[in-house]
Design a protein around this nucleic acid. Structure first.
Length: 331
DNA sequence: AACCAGGCTGCGC
DNA sequence: GCGCAGCATGGT
């Protein structure tokens, strides 16, 4: 049993299986591992690195409610939420494999997971909206409980968006892996290595040539280094953006950075700051999804796209995410 | 082998 | 302001 282990309650309209499927939709992401319906990833918490494993907690709850509380409740070694405190409803079971978390860190981790899986949102209004469009209504049945999987680390989100500009995703994930394996922090556990996205200060010390050697284009390498500098010297951060008055101000601030256009800005805002109305305009995948669903016939029908999204106020980002979901098919 | 890829910049009008 | 070429590099 893991040193620290607790249950995280999730909304009724949360489906861990759908989220897992999205995480495992066929790309080689270097920042988490999937195995046997569990996700494992390294995170940086206040007091150091933690190796976190997430799985469905329903079995643990069942066991608890049937009276055999040993599964989650009385782990020797402490750090455990008292059994029975949250038996109602579905849960995720969270295990920290490498050490014991302080209570503060457990809270920090809970907040991270809320953020990553977007747990604090009622999806029913969204489903009610798409039910009115016969071209979209299948999404409720097919993807029910899928959450907008976030990238809580804004630096990572922006770098990832830049890496993904104008190249196919398979190649983008390869570039990310090279970057992370070279500059990222690693933690070893049971013979496996887990990576964290590079620290801005570390990446800021890389050279243009280093990144070009990893098949970054010169301009893309330059953009990433500039962003790393901005985060390293604190001129850009999640907090800085949050202090701004509105979305428009955040977009403006991001776009003023060289290499960041409207697509990158909106991608980062929807994935990292949970902005609900940010559409990564021009996105190749989004346009293809709209064509596949017969919502547009041509990628240049910009006003039709705008009209379409106008029907989903405050749910634009979710709709984009679900449209991306349609691009991957189950085997 | 041509065309596409979860775009952006810089230029010419 | 708007349109468009050029970019870099791999995938299909």
């Amino acid at each position: 049993m893991a040193p620290t282990c607790f249950l995280l309650s999730v909304p009724a309209d949360f489906n861990f299986g759908e989220c897992l499927w999205f995480l495992d939709r066929g790309f080689d992401d270097c920042l988490y591992q999937l195995d046997n319906n569990k996700v494992t990833r390294a995170l940086r918490l206040k007091e150091g690195l933690a190796l976190v494993q997430i799985e469905s907690g329903d079995r643990a709850v069942d066991t608890m409610t049937t009276g055999i509380t040993a599964v989650v409740g009385s782990v020797p070694g402490a750090g455990v939420t008292e059994p029975g405190s949250q038996k109602e409803g579905p849960h995720l079971k969270i295990s920290v494999l490498n050490r014991v978390l302080s209570p503060t860190e457990e809270t920090e981790l809970r907040n991270y997971l809320d953020d990553w899986f977007d747990l604090q949102l009622d999806l029913n209004p969204f489903y009610a909206l798409i039910a009115q469009d016969s071209r979209l209504s299948f999404m409720k049945a097919d993807y029910y409980g899928l959450r907008l999987i976030g990238i809580p680390d804004l630096f990572e989100a922006i770098c990832w968006a830049i890496i993904g500009q104008q190249i196919n995703l398979t190649f983008a994930y390869k570039l990310k892996r090279k970057l992370v394996e070279r500059y990222g922090t690693t933690i070893e556990f049971n013979g496996n290595r887990y990576f964290l996205f590079p620290d801005p200060a570390v990446l800021a010390n890389a050279s243009l040539e280093d990144l070009q050697a990893m098949q970054f284009s010169r301009s893309k390498a330059g953009y990433v280094l500039k962003i790393a500098e901005a985060f390293a010297n604190q001129s850009l951060s999640k907090a800085v953006l949050r202090e701004m008055p509105d979305v428009a101000a955040r977009q403006k601030a991001l776009i003023s950075v060289k290499g960041v256009g409207i697509w990158t800005a909106n991608y980062a805002l929807m994935k990292s700051l949970k902005e609900r109305s940010c559409i990564p305009h021009g996105d190749a995948g989004l346009l293809n999804a709209l064509i596949n669903l017969d919502i547009i016939k041509d990628k240049k029908e910009l006003s039709d796209i705008e009209t379409f999204f106008n029907g989903y106020p405050e749910w634009e980002s979710y709709l984009v995410f679900y449209l991306w979901r349609t691009l991957s098919t189950r085997v």
